[in-house]
Amino acid sequence: MNTPIGVFDSGIGGLSVLRALQKALPHERFVYLADNAHAPYGEKSEAFVRERTETIAAHLLAQHHIKALVVACNTATAAAIHELRAQHPQLPLVGVEPALKPALALSRTGHIGVIATRGTVASDKFARLLASVQGEAHFVVQACNGLALAIEQSTLPDQAMAAQAQISHLLRSYTEAMGRFGTGPGDIDTMVLGCTHYVFVEDDLRQLLGPGVQLLSTGEAVARQTQRLLAAAGLLNTQDANSSARSMRLMTTGDLQGLQAAAMRWLGLPPELCEAAPAKLQT
């Protein structure tokens, strides 16, 4: 089935998931929507995030006839995935959540760090996830206010330098607050990236935390789950892979130049694949 898979995030963070999806599903078409005009979701109310999520899902279904939807945002998943499943029971839906359970298998010290947005950390869904693994390891959870926004701003030419300085400051401040990182007894040896934006500052984190600390994101797991759901529903595209120009479409409710820069920087996609989302989605 050659209709596209919908992917959306509050901004550019979901591009890290899109990258994994494209690699795992090279025959598929994708339409990506970045809700930059309302980013970051992690610092908005749950009701607001739920309303935006439902509006964007309805748009992607009506205008792009998507065959599956990947909610490539931890905050939106926590706030709205259950409602989306109830509203669209026939639509294969994949959300993202912090990789706490996979982290258990990797950690040798039993001390695991989790960084995420305030909205994710405060959600009932995250509380249930954390409760499900309590007692199996010691989890240090840190809400990182401002980090997703700084990563968004780092793609804008006139804000890039200031944003990068802010990223460095925030990462150092938040990781220092979490405790000691390393491979010794009591050290945090595994860090869960609980926001899709944070994948794009992995290099900065590695410099701060050292080579012995493992970083866990969710893109590959989401891609595998998407592939499983499409296969089970008989929706996988069996045609030859399309060229990127025909198989990818990216939209933003915010700054088009920022999305173009991010798509080029992290996915190697040309600017002409990016466009402004319809005006009704921008307000």
Rank of each mutant, 00 (worst) to 15 (best):
245 A>C: 05
203 D>V: 07
221 A>V: 07
180 R>L: 11
171 L>H: 03
149 L>V: 00
223 A>V: 08
146 G>T: 04
141 V>A: 12
112 I>C: 04
179 G>Y: 02
137 A>F: 07
156 L>F: 09
155 T>Y: 15
151 I>W: 02
162 A>T: 10
136 E>L: 15
181 F>P: 04
226 T>S: 08
162 A>G: 06
143 A>R: 11
171 L>A: 06
207 Q>D: 09
147 L>Y: 11
229 L>K: 13
219 G>S: 08
124 D>I: 07
173 S>H: 15
185 P>A: 13
232 A>N: 09
157 P>E: 14
230 L>G: 02
135 G>T: 10
154 S>V: 01
196 T>E: 04
198 Y>P: 01
136 E>K: 15
137 A>M: 09
136 E>Y: 09
128 R>Q: 12
187 D>E: 13
120 T>G: 09
189 D>S: 15
224 R>C: 00
154 S>H: 07
221 A>M: 06
244 S>H: 10
117 T>M: 11
127 A>F: 11
246 R>S: 12
216 L>Y: 02
223 A>T: 08
112 I>G: 04
105 A>Y: 01
182 G>N: 05
202 E>Y: 01
117 T>D: 08
107 S>V: 13
187 D>Q: 07
206 R>Q: 14
183 T>L: 12
194 G>V: 11
177 A>W: 04
110 G>P: 03
232 A>C: 04
119 G>W: 11
211 P>F: 05
184 G>C: 06
223 A>S: 12
215 L>G: 00
234 G>P: 03
206 R>H: 12
176 E>A: 14
220 E>K: 12
196 T>N: 04
137 A>N: 11
214 Q>W: 00
190 T>H: 08
236 L>K: 12
181 F>E: 02
240 D>T: 13
163 A>T: 05
225 Q>S: 13
120 T>S: 09
212 G>F: 02
105 A>V: 07
157 P>W: 00
240 D>I: 06
121 V>Y: 02
194 G>W: 07
109 T>L: 12
243 S>R: 09
184 G>N: 08
107 S>K: 11
187 D>W: 05
140 V>L: 07
234 G>M: 07
159 Q>T: 08
180 R>K: 11
170 L>V: 06
168 S>C: 07
225 Q>K: 14
151 I>Q: 04
149 L>W: 05
194 G>C: 09
116 A>H: 05
119 G>Q: 09
204 D>A: 15
190 T>E: 08
178 M>V: 02
131 A>C: 06
236 L>M: 14
243 S>V: 14
181 F>K: 01
246 R>P: 01
228 R>D: 15
150 A>M: 10
208 L>S: 03
161 M>K: 10
140 V>F: 09
123 S>W: 03
191 M>E: 01
148 A>K: 03
158 D>Y: 05
128 R>V: 10
124 D>K: 10
217 S>K: 08
173 S>L: 14
240 D>C: 11
159 Q>W: 02
151 I>H: 02
163 A>E: 13
202 E>G: 00
231 A>I: 00
202 E>L: 09
215 L>W: 00
125 K>G: 01
178 M>R: 05
214 Q>L: 15
158 D>M: 02
186 G>E: 05
220 E>G: 00
210 G>K: 07
